[in-house]
Design a protein around this nucleic acid. Structure first.
Lengths: 325, 325
DNA sequence: CGCCGAGAAGATAACGTTGTCACCCGTGAC
DNA sequence: GTCACGGGTGACAACGTTATCTTCTCGGCG
């Protein structure tokens, strides 16, 4: 900036004014400065700017795994919105490790981003309190945060499960198995709770042997599937609570002897035979919504935290519409 | 840092020494300073550090689309490596738009990252020249960059096509169709060139009507498939040159009357029936390798640019092992 | 006993911006 | 002719670090 000022024969401050598009610069001066900027290939040092202004025009995004299509889609939406405001997106994965979530998040906040979006894993996110009181806007996605007051954008798990259950009930299924993730996971709890509630609402009894929760390991899924399908009175339909479980189920049983509705879409779901009937979440909407909440909060830091539920929809493709036996 | 110094009764510089783990601090002083840091919840302002040191301990990653599993996997590998060195990853998508590639990349370099990884789209990347001579390390992935001297990490497209072709030839196929992306795309050119070369090497004539390149639109794929499959002497095997094309083909023809080998793996490829035979790239290796090249280059900025080819492998799953008719 | 060197700590000046204030000059009102 | 005003510009300090140089205090050695 100093060099540009010298080349254009103006003061440093005038160059700053030009770079920031301030209007109080005479057209003739502006032209000279612009020319000097172009000639010297000058570009503002964002780090210095951040130091002066306090915020780095960046947003941090901490997800479970950026290679997971669900989170990759959130990332895409966030990035698209961020670019409109000339914000840079820093992205990192927690890999389901609470300590890593914290390290990655704090690594981001040390760069003083305007906002932080995170998919919480740890029990509490109170390590963010100092940054929040320092003006950081925070939004949780996929699961709510604990120990801090912040906005949250979640899928409408309850409605999703309702869609799945009622879809199966409508076809006459009465023995519906539910296979969900570890109850330590918030979404797993929400979904299985909804499952029980909707079944009860329709007066359909639930056999406790047919509601099974656990981490989606091959062993767990295999053993659970055996008990659900091989018993004397097997289930006629199955709901899988997330896509890692769905994948395990499909790998073990390419042609499942029961109807299947999966929570979470899969990329090639329509190419399978039968096509996979899913409750699809809308990760792009989650990312977009999070960005909207954050820009509201940056405009009005003290507003009440909001929790927004993003709609899900049922996509019938075959696997959930057959096999009543 | 000033507050911490005051609280610990030492000078600013001593706090700096502690924060940076310098060894010339008396154990007793170190204890006092650490205590003050913890008590005040102090964390270093990375922006100020960057300003002083010139580099922001970040790396920029510009891909075509972070929601594309191939690039998401590259991102994951990059992030994993970056975290080991306490580097932050800024990620952005060009969406195949040269102007956007440039804007995103320059938006990153304005933050003075240590290194930039990009999947080039634009004809030339010479807009990076000022930053490179300023010490930025650059590495191209997926395709080489033009107009700048930089490292590159690419899939071994030629070997991949060779594997595909020879796999089909070994089963007796002689009429093999090739369906590739727009020849404006570097990888598309490399792959189709390899196809012709390997076919020639084996003395198998190639009918020019059966080598078709174009953007993977439904219309293009549908029309091309018709001519390849419906003519009097149809192809008995098909190679698709990237996964968007593969997807279109599979959507049109769930049960293809020809053997199929696809370049690029798909998430559920093994669950399809028949399973999809693919030439799988190794995006994680691409990301890791790029990071290695960059750390070499940061250590030795003037070394010769290197181009590394990452091995690919053929995964037979059924679609490429049948249907000779 | 004086000196030197090493180990520990501090003072100060940058790094590249932007916010604040001050200045200059011409114009229009009184 | 004076004054207030505002558009255009500049000087300077500050943001939070770190690099460089300096200072101080010991202990050991000639």
């Amino acid at each position: 900036m100093k060099d540009v000022a010298e080349a254009a024969g103006v003061a440093l401050k005038t160059v700053s004014r030009v770079v920031n598009g301030e209007t109080t610069v005479a057209p003739e001066t502006l032209g000279r400065v612009q020319a000097a900027i172009d000639r010297l290939g000058y570009r503002r040092n964002e780090g210095a700017r951040q130091l002066r202004q306090g915020r780095s025009q960046a947003i941090g995004l901490v997800v479970r795994d950026i290679a997971d299509p669900f989170f990759a889609a959130i990332g895409k939406a966030v990035e698209t919105r961020a670019e409109e405001d000339d914000l840079v997106v820093m992205i990192g994965s927690s890999h389901d490790d609470p300590a890593r979530e914290r390290d990655v998040a704090l690594g981001f906040t040390a760069r003083r981003p305007n906002a932080l979006i995170l998919a919480p894993i740890a029990k509490r996110q109170d390590y963010l309190l100092p940054d929040i009181s320092d003006g950081l806007a925070v939004c949780a996605v996929d699961r709510p945060a604990q120990g801090i007051a912040c906005d949250a954008v979640l899928s409408d798990n309850a409605v999703g499960i309702r869609l799945a259950v009622e879809h199966l009930l409508k076809q006459g299924h009465r023995r519906i198995g539910y296979l969900g993730d570890d109850p330590a996971v918030f979404t797993a709890r929400e979904r299985v709770t909804a499952f029980r509630a909707v079944m009860a609402e329709h007066g359909v009894p639930v056999d406790e042997h047919e509601v099974r929760l656990g981490s989606p390991s091959p062993e767990f899924v295999t053993s659970v599937m055996r008990t659900m399908l091989d018993e004397s009175d097997p289930v006629t339909a199955l709901i899988t609570g997330n896509n890692r479980i769905t994948l395990e189920v499909l790998k073990r049983h390419p042609s499942l002897p029961a109807a299947l509705v999966a929570f979470d879409d899969l990329e090639l779901a329509e190419l399978l035979r039968p096509g996979l009937t899913v409750v699809a979440q809308d990760p792009e909407a989650i990312g977009r919504t999070a960005m909207s909440l954050l820009s509201d909060r940056l405009a009005e830091p003290l507003r009440e935290p909001r929790e927004i539920r993003v709609p899900v929809r049922l996509i019938p493709r075959g696997s959930g519409e057959t096999l009543l036996r």
